[in-house]
Design a protein around this nucleic acid. Structure first.
Lengths: 335, 335
DNA sequence: TTATGAACCTACAACGTTGCAGGACAACAA
DNA sequence: TTGTTGTCCTGCAACGTTGTAGGTTCATAA
């Protein structure tokens, strides 16, 4: 059925190896020979067998991308960006979902035989924590994304969470807001997106000389829209005064915004709202949502680059890479 | 570096083939031998080399999924469902994006050597049309999704678009609405989601004895939120009266809803709105959006099943499979 | 006792490719 | 002339696996 080097070689009247050389752009080939071979390849419609090539070379041209779940917009947009970045480098992406970031699933995934197909993995953990850092000692090239785990034995690409959250908070302060609620904190967390962004929030308050108010900090379990909505309900019920909300991600902010509107508050007049992540969706909400763009394309590009380098050179010491961010002001924080 | 059958065989004191037999659950193996081998596998941490296995067997355990782009929620949720469905069958999914549904890219993708890695493809076209049906004559197992192309030479999984759109429209009519605008029609289209859903809309009107009004049918280019918003602007500017809106997909409906609210209309009091696709997001909008659930999980399950069958039996005639749908009433069409 | 067949195990070849080593030939310098 | 260098091409072996065919052992039946 399938056309092999052998078939091409026979038709072109050369050896198998010469065909292979042509296919792989080997230098020392007479132009006439090259053309004969290319013609044969063309008439037979030859395509190299990737399995055989992989077996021989040990490379597959596939990279893995493990993330909690594609239904979450943040990860869908991340996957989109990673696939595009990989494509530019002639790599193809195989996606593993870890059941919404289940710790056991993540650990299991790290040693899954399914990764055999892969030259390396880009991993965005959610359930695992720094305690699980030992599981990252894998035998294949691994690039870590996000803020769940620091100081692991692998390359790590992440954004400047503290600085970005500080900038988002400063954005609100610059618009005269002083009673800024923050939604999405995680009880007792030290690293992780929630903790880092909360720290940025506190830094900004400190810099502006605003006393932090614990009653303005709302804790949630997950970072879904429902959690944002519920946290806002609680905040409203508590009766505490506030004139701005910082959602530690866009989804939380959108959920909170909905509840604010239901309660009759005007955005941004009564309450200004800002999110975090730069989701596409924030451009279309009512009102449009100010947010922090973490530079997703840059993260994706960098992650793929770093992985490619790591595949080429496994002995280099692991490095940490930081991307740039930008605050995007929209209607929800308009003056 | 990597542990092979050979290493395991040496340690266990049996032949390579016996180890292979154990790994592949060959029946006639003495329990004691099996345990010896399993012990050796365990101590060495053996994992089969998938490239070699693929080369030998011609199967990779990978299926391709080609779709316009993951940033569009519909496709992100579809990909999520397909990956889950594939996982249940011990398959892994490789995702190809076709640049938002670019026709050239779709055609190119169909003969990409990247598909070599794959046992078959699930393809959700957007740019290609029924004129391009010839390009679907590929040599690998292919399952088509969606409504762009009918009557192709491949298996096809889709939903009952006409019936579902009719049901959505009837849902509005049952709530006393008679001036129902529809957003998202495609000029001159005959097949395709837009045309089919528009037909369902017209069928429902006809059944209720409502005369269709061409000025209530709004045409758009793409099905993004901005297009929905713009169509609604035009509709409002046109001054035509309406008491309900049927967005041919959820994104259009959400965009339209935003503009309706900006214009001061109350939903559903002044205007009822229903969408189509059952996006997760519709559960969280303000107000929550009524929609049609096309049974995405069922589509994904079926697509993977059909592909697996097709891989096993390439000679069976192509079939068309239809999934069930359900109308989900929410706040945007509440009585 | 031997014949029969099932249970268990093994050697060999092959899947399609590429690295390696080397051969044939031409061009050029000494 | 001979030696040297470079160009162009080839055969062989190997990557790790599984299908095929066949061999050995053992229990059971004749």
């Amino acid at each position: 059925m399938a056309v092999t080097l052998h078939d091409v070689a026979t038709l072109a009247g050369v050896s198998i190896k010469t065909v292979s050389n042509v296919v792989n752009d080997y230098k020392h080939i007479r132009p006439t020979t090259r053309e004969k071979v290319l013609a044969a390849i063309d008439t037979l419609g030859y395509q190299p067998n990737i399995s055989a090539r992989s077996l021989r070379s040990g490379k597959t041209g596939v990279i893995g991308l493990a993330l909690p779940e594609l239904s979450l917009s943040y990860f869908a947009e991340l996957a989109d960006a990673v696939i595009r970045a990989a494509e530019r480098r002639h790599l193809v992406v195989l996606i593993e979902q870890t059941a919404g970031g289940d710790r056991e699933r993540e650990i299991e995934m790290l040693s899954s035989p399914r990764l055999q197909l892969t030259d390396g993995l880009i991993f965005s953990p959610l359930g695992m924590s720094s305690d699980d850092v030992g599981y990252l000692n894998v035998s294949y090239p691994l690039v870590l994304l996000g803020e769940r785990i620091f100081g692991g034995p692998t390359d790590h690409v992440t954004m400047r969470n503290v600085e970005a959250a500080k900038a988002a908070t400063a954005h609100l302060i610059a618009r005269g807001r002083t009673r800024i609620a923050v939604i999405g904190a995680h009880e007792g967390e030290v690293v992780g997106s929630a903790a880092l962004r909360l720290r940025g929030y506190l830094d900004a308050l400190a810099e502006a000389g605003i006393e932090p108010d614990e009653s303005l900090i709302r804790y949630v379990g997950l970072w879904h829209r429902l959690d944002g909505a519920q946290a806002m309900h609680e905040l409203l019920d508590s009766g505490v005064e506030f004139d701005a909300v910082f959602g530690l991600n866009d989804t939380l902010a959108l959920g909170a915004m909905r509840v604010l509107q239901e309660s009759g508050r005007r955005i941004p007049d009564d309450v200004a709202v800002i999110g975090f992540d730069g989701l596409d969706e924030t451009k279309y909400s009512l009102p449009t949502l100010s947010t922090v763009d973490p530079g997703r394309d840059e993260i994706a590009d960098m992650a793929v680059d770093v992985l490619v380098e790591r595949i080429a050179n496994r002995d280099a010491p692991p490095r940490q890479y930081l991307t740039d961010f930008s605050v995007i002001g929209r209607e929800s924080t308009a003056d």
